[in-house]
Structures are given as C-alpha cells and as structure tokens.
Design a protein around this nucleic acid. Structure first.
Lengths: 155, 155
DNA sequence: GGCGCGCTGGTCAGATTGACCACTCTACTC
DNA sequence: GAGTAGAGTGGTCAATCTGACCAGCGCGCC
C-alpha cells in the first residue's frame, strides 16, 4: 500500500494561497509567498503527481448540476456479495461517496437527487442493487458546516 | 436565497477536462474542447464567480495532513443552543463537515484524526461543546467509493 | 425588424512557463 | 572534516499564454 505523501508547511501555504485564487499563475503565488518560482512550480508538480489532491471535479457543487437534495443512505449487505453491491453502486451517478463504517451498518452512501421524489427513485435504485439487503435513507436538511480542510491546513 | 447557477453542457465539458489537468492553460483547454479561447476564459471566470465550485483546498486529502482516520459523529443537541454548538464545532480543525439530517439525529459530523486514540480526543472535544447533549462516534474503516461528481458531470 | 447575449476569430503588449543552468545551504553518512 | 544528495534561489531564453479589447455572426426574445 502506497503511503500518502505528507504535506509540509510550504505545501500548505501554497494550498491556502490557491484557495484565494485556484488558477493563480505560479509567478503570482511565488511573489505572494516569498518563494522562488521554481520552488512553487516543483511543489505543485509534486502535489499533482503524488495523489495528495483529489480530482478537480470534487470541487463542483452538486446543486449546480440540478441536484439540490442530499441524503445519506445506510445499507446492510449480503456479506458474500459486497463486490457486486459496490460495483452496482459505482454505476449510479447520484452516488457521490461510499464509506464502510465500523458497527452494524455495512455502507454509508452519500447521494444527491433533484427533488425528494427523485431521492425516492435513487433510494429504490440502491435498494435494488445486488447484495443489498436493506437500506435506510436520511435526507440532509441543511449543510451546517460546508466541507473544509482550511483549518487543518492552517495549523 | 441566491439560486445556484446551473452548469450547462459546455461548463461540464470544461470541468471534466480540468479533471485531466487542473492547471491546464485556457489555450490548451480550448484546443482540446474545440472552443474559442474567449469562451473558455469567460466560462471559467463565470464559474469561479458564481459559487458553483468549492474552495480549492477541498481537494486536499486529510491523510496528507497526517489525518489517516476518518469518522462520523452523530450528535444530539440542546435545541436552544444550536448556534453555540455549531460555533464551537467550527473551531475544531478536525471537523471537516457538519450536516443536519432529518430524523432523531441533530447533526452528522465528519471528522478526521491522526489515530484511533486521537479520534477519542476529537470525539471528547465534540462531546464537550456547549449545547451538545450526547454523541455517537463511528469510525470509517474504508472509503469504498471516494467522493466524486464525474458521473453527474458526464451525464 | 430590432435588440441583447454569447460565441468565434482576431490583435497586441505584457506576463508566464518550461527547461535548463550554476550556486548555496542543509542534513546525512563515512 | 570531507563528500554527497536534495532542495531552494536566482538566472536565461524561446515559446506560449493571458488580459483586454474588437468586429461580426447566429440565436432567441420581444
């Protein structure tokens, strides 16, 4: 298993500066941070190559794609068919993320939909995946603290 | 309430191209997509200005900041002190996200930690926030489907 | 028909980048 | 102490890109 490269203080400063302007030129970042242009360039290249950043599209708000409803689906699986279930879930575009927690629940699935009625459709689609025994859907009423890592970067 | 701008097919093509190379020059994107340079530039500017994209740092993997343990904390709140609770949660760097679901649980809190022991510390810190009556922590054992929106973009 | 919007293709000065180089500093090993 | 490797700085230069602006065209709306 590849060990995820750790970010040092310089990397974190660059990443925080990119929050201000994600497409800022390397020269501009270098001037703002008091670093050499080559340093910023090599750090960005290294971060891009090392997998410490997720894909650019993870920045896209699902609402802007017409999916204003978010929910979390808990699923219980047929233990011998986990791979089938996961493969089927991958095929559902509205499935944003799928985690395996400790405890009774087998999967926690983050989904989006265009409306409550559409959420019903997505939930049904999940329920009917092979290997899925039972599901429970909880609609998210509000995003109280939007996803962030800035506080960790700034430490 | 400001209505989130919707992304059209051209926007989505640009965003998918950015998944290939997040720092690709506008000229390169234009050539790849068969669009005029001015079109790509104006679309990127509009997406940047309209809030359809989250901050750049949302791309950062928490593991690369030493937080290899992820968990979900469910919290029950003192209804009259929700604002206090949320303000206190905002002050905890390890809190990545906080959602308000329908149902018995008042808050679903996504957290990270450096180790199971550190997770205990973070859970305690949350439990001791003003307005938080009771919490339940579930460690995430595995990310089965990493967060993605590519399937929605590609529709 | 007129108007507004968005796109294309264009220009041009200024800025940036990619690739390379030499030098310096630090940390590590022997 | 000497030698080595890695990382950063400051530099060069040709190629590329960008920002700002422009004219023309097509489409949708009134």
């Amino acid at each position: 298993m590849i060990r995820t490269q750790q970010l040092d203080a310089t990397d974190r400063r660059i990443l925080l500066a990119l929050d201000e302007d994600p497409r800022a030129p390397i020269m501009v970042l270098a001037q703002r941070l008091g670093l050499a242009r080559g340093t910023v360039q090599s750090r960005l290249e290294r971060m891009a190559a090392s997998g410490v950043l997720r894909g650019h599209s993870t920045r896209v708000q699902p609402e802007s794609l017409g999916r204003g409803v978010t929910a979390e689906v808990s699923a219980e699986l047929d233990q011998s068919r986990i791979d089938d279930a996961v493969a089927a879930l991958r095929g559902i575009p509205e499935v944003l993320e799928c985690l395996a927690p400790a405890g009774d629940t087998d999967l926690l699935i983050r989904v989006v939909a265009t409306s409550p009625d559409d959420l019903y459709r997505v939930s049904e689609e999940i329920r009917l995946c092979p290997g899925i025994r039972r599901t429970s859907t909880r609609m998210i009423l509000r995003t109280v603290i939007p996803y962030r890592t800035t506080a960790l970067l700034a430490e």
